[in-house]
Design a protein around this nucleic acid. Structure first.
Length: 563
RNA sequence: UGGGGGAUGGUCUAAUGGUAAGACGGCGGACUCUGACUCCGCUUAUCGGGGUUCGAAUCCCUGUCCCCCAGCCA
């Protein structure tokens, strides 16, 4: 459900789609082919969603195709479990790679051939320098590098040495294969970059078949080429790499030469986006795993109750550009609010209950009140809510001495109980020790059943409620932003974890909801009227004591006035 | 400091030599049986300085600021 991708094409094309459109129009690439190339070394996050929506979005819009390709060239960091989580997340976001599930490791043999070809062309050599020496020889930003003493080995020797590397004659790190380009290049990446290293680690797909692994720069362009990718989209930090990408394909004179185009990665306020930092939050126990509802991983967002459609809408709203930018977290929150406003059924939920006694309501009476499941969508039907003499309302909906502009319940004030009756507060009882309100006494007007009065008098406030005898207990997790500041990793001198929001999770265990919610399937969303959108937790709670996670609050202009 | 990029309201994105537009936020108002939703209005921008041109965000020169690159990571 809700899998339709919202596309507003009245909006101008971003610069990448313009290029794709021109290439299509000119006949250069009638059918664009893109790819999403994650490394299976962690979970996907909202930043990846931007790239996924871009790549798959383009293929959908222009009648092309998009591959899912795992960039699995570093077995020391990669795991099969990550492959599965990534596939699941891409699918959940609503995209389909069809038969185009690929792995860079599928191309190891071909990439190795290309390496030998480079050697034969005199464009690659085996280098015996240690890692430290290679760094020292590389030069600096302002000084050119020095040529490796192994740079001018013969083709035959290079070929023999490279094959011996592959055969496992040498130890890890003992030798590397390097491209022979230019040690004086102002682009440091071009100073004879390493193409292959020796690494003995079990690979999640090829096992111990290989002990040499190709580096990113050599692998990525060739993988793109082998898959006939037309537009290879990546983030800004790879701009220098494009030079090497083109060098490899030009030197090898490959029949296909994809165009690499870079765009700005997503930055969101009040969070961190790097896999390393997300991992640290998990391992240090600041969150409850990769799918903690406060994490902006795809799995965390799913658990929080975000919908794929909201995430897609968000990715579309933020646009594609080339300048480093920061999207306000509020934009993401609005995306889910807007989506759920349309789709989520409404229900009554009281987070912090306080008892109300309707003094003039018959002691033993229970009647049923019709309540719409969605105010703007009658087709979603209605339900019956039991009403009786003793009710619960939200503690913050009553003030003994109301401040200005407060138009909820207070002594002498009349408010509407949503869908039910007008009630007027006559008195309240307090705990003599704490001063806390324990019971609020009201009278109701029997003429106002259903929520309107025959004399046409208006009330300022409408509040939600639950019949005390019929309400179901539950636990509610109130989630807030994980970090308390806009740019948690903005200051390199301060550990980003210093900025963790101590109130990012507040668990309320004495909440009440309509009994009908016992049937709400885990993972599905509901709006507790006047409170926000909530999601029944996937794997905690019991049938008679469910757990709900707050996805996002409703916009609250009273909170603004109140501050 | 060498190289690669970037700079448009508070934020993001357009305008590709021809009226600086849209979205989000913010503020104000209307509506309302959710202080929600919806609707209306307002606010605020071309990094600085020169130049070319009838006309410049756009082209040229110059300056400033920001990001990325010195992994056998991707």
């Amino acid at each position: 459900m809700n899998n339709d991708t919202p596309t507003d094409r009245s909006r101008p094309l971003d610069f990448i789609r313009q290029i794709v459109a021109e290439d299509q129009k000119s006949g250069k690439h009638p059918q664009p082919v893109t790819r999403f190339p994650p490394e299976p070394n962690g979970f996907l996050h909202i930043g990846h969603a931007k790239s996924i929506c871009l790549n798959f979005g383009i293929s959908n819009e222009f009648g092309g195709r998009c591959h899912l390709r795992f960039d699995d060239t570093n077995p020391s960091k990669e795991e099969a479990a990550y492959v599965e989580s990534i596939k699941r997340d891409v699918r959940w976001l609503g995209f389909d790679w069809h038969e185009h599930l690929h792995y860079a490791s599928d191309y190891f043999e071909q990439i190795c051939h290309f390496a030998e070809r480079l050697i034969e062309l005199g464009k690659a050599y085996v280098c015996d320098l240690t890692g430290e020496q290679i760094r020292a020889y590389r030069g600096t930003l302002t000084e050119p590098g020095r040529e490796s003493p192994y740079r001018n080995r013969s083709v035959e020797e290079n070929l023999r040495l490279f094959r011996e590397m592959r055969a496992g004659i040498y130890g890890d790190g003992e030798r590397v294969l390097r491209a022979k380009i230019d040690m004086a290049s102002p682009i440091i990446l071009m100073r004879d970059p390493v193409l292959y290293r020796i690494l003995r680690a079990p690979h999640h797909r090829t096992g111990d078949a290989w002990c040499i692994y190709p580096m990113y720069d050599f692998t990525h362009c060739l993988s793109d080429m082998l898959e006939s990718i037309t537009h290879s989209l990546c983030t800004l930090e790879f701009q220098d790499n494009r030079q090497l990408y083109d060098w490899v394909l030009d030197t090898l004179q490959t029949p296909c030469h994809p165009r690499q185009i870079e765009f700005a990665r997503l930055n969101l306020t009040y969070t961190v986006m790097s896999k390393r930092k997300l991992l640290q939050l998990v391992t240090d126990g600041h969150v409850d795993g990769w799918d903690d509802p406060r994490m902006l991983t795809i799995s965390g967002l799913r658990r929080r109750g975000y919908t794929p459609r909201a995430i897609r809408t968000f990715c579309e709203q933020i646009g594609i550009g080339k300048k480093e930018s920061w999207i306000d977290m509020g934009v993401l929150e609005n995306a889910i609010r807007d989506d759920l406003n349309e789709t989520a059924p409404r229900a009554m939920g009281v987070l912090d209950p306080v008892k109300v006694v309707i003094d003039n309501y018959p002691d033993d009476q229970v009647e049923f009140i019709e309540a719409r499941n969605h105010p703007q969508r009658p087709e979603l039907g209605s339900r019956s809510l039991p009403f009786s003499r003793e009710l619960y309302i939200e503690r913050e909906d009553f003030r003994e001495t109301p401040p200005g502009k407060f138009f909820r319940l207070a002594p002498g004030r009349e408010v509407r109980l949503r869908y039910a009756y007008y009630i007027t507060c006559v008195s309240c009882e307090k705990d003599p020790q704490t001063g806390e309100i324990t019971v609020i006494h009201c009278t109701y007007d029997p003429q106002t059943k259903g929520g309107s009065s025959p004399d046409g008098r208006k009330v300022k406030g409408t509040i939600h409620w639950l019949s005390a005898a019929h309400a179901a207990p539950c636990t509610i997790n109130l989630y807030d932003r994980l970090f308390a500041v806009e740019h948690p990793d903005g200051d390199k001198a301060v550990d980003f974890k210093e900025h963790l929001n101590p109130h990012s999770l507040h668990t309320l265990t004495r909440c009440l909801v309509e009994t009908s919610l016992a049937d709400l399937p885990p993972g599905s969303q509901v709006q507790f009227e006047r409170q926000g959108y909530f999601c029944r937790d996937l794997d905690s709670g019991t049938p008679d004591h469910p757990v709900f996670n707050r996805i996002v609050t409703l916009r609250d202009s009273w909170a603004k006035v109140n501050n």
